[in-house]
Design a protein around this nucleic acid. Structure first.
Length: 186
DNA sequence: TGGAGTACGTCAGAACTGGT
DNA sequence: ACCAGTTCTGACGTACTCCA
């Protein structure tokens, strides 16, 4: 059984009772004689290293004091200096949701294509950068769809040879050439 | 052995959430 | 809008590890 200490809020007073050498921040210097409850000064967001080590981070950029003391030249932060970690995570969450929706749309568009058309799309995907071009790629395929529909609407005005279903999930066999030529227009 | 660095249980306080 | 409860995150304090 370990002897228990009183738990005190961190700051100048608590520091003097626990660790006499802990420095106080300018913010915490106010109200030293007041009996009002002190607030522990906090940085908005701690660097990755300090967070992992659960150590105090002063939030300095590009490198915090603790990391600088260990000879590092740069700290990693999840957000800008004026953004809380929660806000940063929220923004990141929204971004990931947008990306998920795009991937789902891409999956849906691909699953509707013939093998040849899928290969054409995939070959274009290979030249794209997934981080930056995903949205453009989905737009690109959708625009090609739109042009295909316009094209088939025009050709449907001529009497069809047979009662082929007009479902847009089944493109005519020449559609690959059509797509290629239509893509040139985009 | 002691100092430096690390791991982590724990707490404080802010932000968020749901009820009224 | 307000309040109480919950969740999240920064950070304190201590035990532990490593190395000279």
């Amino acid at each position: 059984m370990k002897p228990q200490r009183d738990i005190l809020p961190a700051g100048p007073t608590a520091a003097s009772s626990a660790s006499s050498e802990r420095e106080s921040t300018p913010q915490s210097a106010t109200g030293t004689t007041s009996s009002a409850p002190r607030r522990r000064p906090q940085t908005k967001i701690a660097c990755t290293s300090c967070r992992r080590r659960k150590s105090k981070c002063d939030g300095m950029r590009p490198v915090c004091s603790l990391c600088a003391g260990m000879g590092r030249t740069k700290c990693e932060y999840d957000a800008g200096p004026d953004v809380t970690r929660f806000a940063a995570l929220k923004t990141k969450h929204e971004g990931l949701q947008r990306r998920l929706a795009l991937f789902e749309e891409l999956f849906r568009l691909l699953s509707m294509r013939s093998d040849a058309e899928s290969l054409e799309i995939i070959s274009r995907m290979r030249t794209a950068t997934i981080e930056t071009d995903l949205e453009d790629l989905v737009k690109f395929i959708k625009n090609a769809d739109l042009l295909m529909q316009l094209s088939s609407t025009q050709s449907d005005q001529t009497p069809p040879a047979s009662g082929a279903p007009g479902a847009d999930t089944h493109l005519p066999s020449t559609s690959l050439n059509d797509i290629s030529s239509l893509l040139e227009l985009l």
